[in-house]
């Protein structure tokens, strides 16, 4: 899997970065032989590492991660009391 992408998403606080990592991590991948993803928080940064067998799989996975990430960010923005 030589197509890789490392994302660093800044959050307001380490707490929110950690929440994002834990909200996104549990879901298993449909084709683990074509793609691997890991989520980790480092301080106030969410670090996502993707490795895929080709560029297409990488793009599709990145898109769906961003969609889920948007939900997390919006929830944290609107509903953090």
């Amino acid at each position: 899997m030589d197509h890789t992408l490392h994302l660093h998403v800044p959050f307001e606080s380490a707490r929110l970065a950690d929440i994002a990592a834990r909200a996104l991590a549990p879901d298993p991948l449909l084709r683990p032989e074509e793609l691997s993803v890991s989520f980790a928080s480092d301080g106030a940064s969410l670090n996502i590492k993707l490795a895929a067998i080709d560029a297409r799989v990488l793009r599709v996975a990145t898109n769906s991660i961003f969609e889920a990430l948007k939900t997390v960010v919006e929830t944290a923005d609107e509903l953090d009391f």
Partner: peptide, 8 residues
């Protein structure tokens, strides 16, 4: 969204 709220 549910997981995020649960942690928040």
């Amino acid at each position: 969204a549910a997981r995020t709220m649960s942690m928040l």
